[in-house]
Amino acid sequence: MTGNLIYGLIKKKYKPSNSQLIVSLNHKNVILRKKPLVIVGSHRKESDTLTFTEEVMKGIPHKLINLKDRKISAYCYSGKYSEDDDFEKIASLMAVHNPIVFATPVYWYTMSGLMKDYFDRITDLLTINKTGGRRLRGKTMFVISVGSDKKCPDGFEMPFRNTATYLGMRFGGIAYQSTKRKNIKDFEIIRRRLIRHTYI
């Protein structure tokens, strides 16, 4: 993606100088600080959710984590988990990346089981790892989702939006893709917002 295209998407709101734009595109530290972390929660390896996520993120530097390939234990009130549990590793990545993008298929009008297990574990960032929870404040959360309904089900975004609010994060919006028709509007809106967060 060229600097001219990115500038064309953001200039109306931000109007950065040429020097600022060059730093944003080429200075490694700046790009890494704004590099999105994408957490995918589909049970299928080559899923529609992953395909749509790759479309949304195309040309945007990012790190992708597939929960299917990681071990996320169910939430435990004792806070004791197996040594091979991966939640803390992913949580540490959340602390150094911004924005955070959650990608999930719609299962019975809500997030997938894999993603729900992960969200349940966020409780650990409020109890046994409060520092990790505090480091999420001020970050932005986006959601990418795929389902069979023509529109995103009512109430689907509520757990994400409310979680973001509770953690002191901003909710950047949701890009929903129906398997029956392509939602160009959501796609373009979220891409533009992600580009702003990555390069500004």
Rank of each mutant, 00 (worst) to 15 (best):
M1S: 13
G3F: 00
N4K: 13
N4H: 08
I6V: 15
L9E: 07
L9Y: 11
L9P: 01
K11N: 12
K13G: 02
K13C: 01
Y14F: 13
S19T: 13
Q20A: 15
L21A: 13
I22V: 14
I22E: 15
S24R: 06
L25I: 07
V30M: 05
V30Y: 11
R33N: 15
K35Q: 15
K35E: 13
P36H: 05
L37C: 08
L37K: 05
V38P: 03
V40C: 11
S42T: 09
S42Y: 01
H43Y: 11
R44V: 05
T49H: 00
T51Y: 02
F52Q: 00
F52A: 00
T53A: 06
T53I: 01
M57F: 05
G59S: 09
L64W: 03
L64G: 01
I65S: 03
N66G: 03
N66A: 08
L67Q: 07
K68V: 08
K71Y: 02
S73P: 01
S73Y: 03
A74E: 10
C76A: 15
C76Y: 05
S82Q: 10
S82G: 11
E83S: 14
E83D: 14
E83F: 01
D84N: 13
D85E: 09
F87P: 04
F87G: 08
K89W: 00
I90S: 03
I90D: 01
A91L: 02
A91S: 11
A91P: 00
S92C: 02
M94P: 05
M94Y: 02
M94C: 14
M94N: 08
A95L: 00
H97S: 15
H97N: 15
H97I: 06
I100L: 13
F102I: 09
T104Q: 07
Y107M: 10
W108V: 12
M111W: 04
S112E: 07
G113K: 05
G113S: 15
L114F: 11
L114N: 06
M115D: 10
K116I: 03
F119T: 05
D120V: 07
I122H: 06
I122T: 13
T123Y: 06
D124W: 03
L125H: 04
L126I: 05
T127E: 10
I128H: 06
G133V: 09
R135C: 10
R137T: 14
K139S: 09
K139Y: 04
M141H: 03
S145K: 03
V146R: 04
G147D: 08
G147K: 08
C152W: 05
P153D: 12
D154V: 09
M158T: 15
F160M: 10
R161K: 15
N162I: 06
N162M: 13
T163M: 12
A164N: 05
T165P: 00
Y166L: 14
L167A: 11
L167D: 06
G173Q: 11
A175G: 10
S178D: 12
T179F: 02
T179Y: 02
K182S: 14
N183D: 11
I184C: 08
F187H: 13
I189Q: 12
R191V: 08
R192K: 14
L194Y: 10
R196L: 14
H197C: 13
H197Y: 04
H197G: 00
T198L: 09
T198I: 02
I200W: 04
